[in-house]
Write a protein that binds this DNA or RNA. Sequence first.
DNA 1: AGTGTATCCTGCAGGC
DNA 2: TGCCTGCAGGATACAC
Length: 278
Amino acid sequence: MPELPEAETIARGLNAVLPGRVVRRVEVVREDVVSGAAGPFARAVAGREIRGVGRRGKNVVFTFADDSRLVVNLGMSGRFMTGADAHGDHPSTHPAVVFHLADGGWMIYDDVRRFGRLSAIPVAEWRRWSRRLGPEPLARGFTAARLRGILARSRSPVRSLLLDQRRIAGVGNIYAVEALWFARIHPQTPANAIGAAAAARLHRALRRVLRNAIRAGGTTLRNYRDANGDEGRFGRALHAYGREEEPCTRCGTAIERIVFGGRSAFVCPRCQDGSALP
DNA sequence: AGTGTATCCTGCAGGC
DNA sequence: TGCCTGCAGGATACAC
């Protein structure tokens, strides 16, 4: 579920309330969501002071005072919720890991489908961990030329390339589909067939879509809620994703759903007909 | 190298 | 109401 904008929204929400607080005890309710065994995971996190909460790609990253980290990939249905009162009710329906804080507060990682993964990363492993991911698409250094270089190295369909976290970090199916609609590029276009002008359109579209989605607090289709329990408001701004048989907002042609790489893509057969590749 | 398929899970919507 | 199918924001492993 959550892609870059959702992870960013969650990280910001957590960063507003967690820095300076200490994790007293970690309760692993569902062992399958932590990497490695529950015991070592809990021991790696318990006792640490949270210095900040950020994001890398689609991952929410907690940095502790000793520079070790807790990295959370939210999978399809991962969520965070926090509360101040240890004895209060909490809204978690599928708690997977409960973090008891030293001041009596709590943070729960809740995950219906349990595709999410929580990993404790020691200081010495952080660089290596982060390097497995491609560049951040919203970073200053991510230029149109850089995107074009990435595209040029692959013949795979451009949508598949955008979803490959090793090449670009944080883009998921919704925003890949949306950016390709804006750029008028068919999702199955071989990446290396995309010329300089089309690559520049895609670069602009990708950053625009991601930025606007962050501004809207992400996209809620079903599960997604931010750290305050609020829905994302970007669903209203979708032009292609999930709009099968609805009119293209640019030309009125019915949006089509196609499936490849095991995932749905949505395309305007007229705007994205493969003729605007230069 | 790239693609299709299966797998990990649960919940929901739609058809009958 | 119940049963069945298909679908879902992700990631990974495997065979071809």
